[in-house]
């Protein structure tokens, strides 16, 4: 202890204390304050950035789920539309085929009708023609046969015979 007291130097103590205290204030002004504030600013910046990133992530998740909902809705809508379209298509096809069948039947019926009419007309025509021709032939034959008395007699006889047979 005595050695320590003996080692103590007043001059060195004064120098050390003065220089050190001045150093504290100089460093405080020119170094520690700017350094610590830079560090704090940076830490604050990092904290804010992290918070923002977290918020953005949450926002993204929200958006994603919203997107999925939208997609699901759209899919359902498409499905519905497709089903409807299919139904409409079937309906149209069915309707069309029904209409076509009816039309075809109508046309066929009309055709039959007209064919039948034409046929009857043709039959009448033919009957008339045949009757006229028959009369012509009959008149020609009669003219021929009745030109002689003998023939007339023969014919009359023949008719009488035929009648007798009846």
């Amino acid at each position: 202890m005595e050695k320590l007291i003996h080692d103590f130097s007043v001059g060195l103590f004064i120098w050390q204390s003065v220089i050190f205290i001045v150093l504290i204030f100089l460093l405080k002004k020119f170094a520690w304050k700017p350094i610590l504030s830079s560090v704090e600013d940076r830490e604050e910046g990092i904290r804010t950035a992290l918070d923002e990133a977290k918020a953005a992530k949450e926002e993204m998740a929200k958006l994603k789920s919203a997107n999925e909902d939208l997609l699901k809705e759209a899919r359902a809508e498409r499905e519905a539309m497709l089903t409807e379209a299919r139904e409409i298509k079937e309906k149209i096809v069915t309707e069309a085929s029904t209409t076509a069948k009816d039309e075809a039947a109508k046309i066929t019926a009309a055709a039959h009708e007209s064919i039948k009419g034409e046929k009857e007309k043709a039959m009448v025509e033919i009957k008339n023609q045949v009757a006229a021709m028959s009369i012509e032939v009959a008149s020609l034959i009669l003219k021929e046969n009745l030109s002689s008395d003998a023939n007339q007699k023969a014919l009359a006889e023949k008719y009488v015979n035929d009648l007798n047979l009846n």
């Binding site: 130097s9 007043v10 001059g11 060195l12 004064i14 120098w15 050390q16 220089i19 050190f20 001045v22 150093l23 100089l26 460093l27 020119f30 170094a31 520690w32 700017p34 350094i35 830079s38």
Partner: peptide, 26 residues
Amino acid sequence: DLSITKNVFMIILMALFMFFIFKGVS
């Protein structure tokens, strides 16, 4: 005795060194 002894000299150098180093850092 307010002499600039070896230790005082070192303290002055160290004070200058620290001042310039940390001012440089800041």
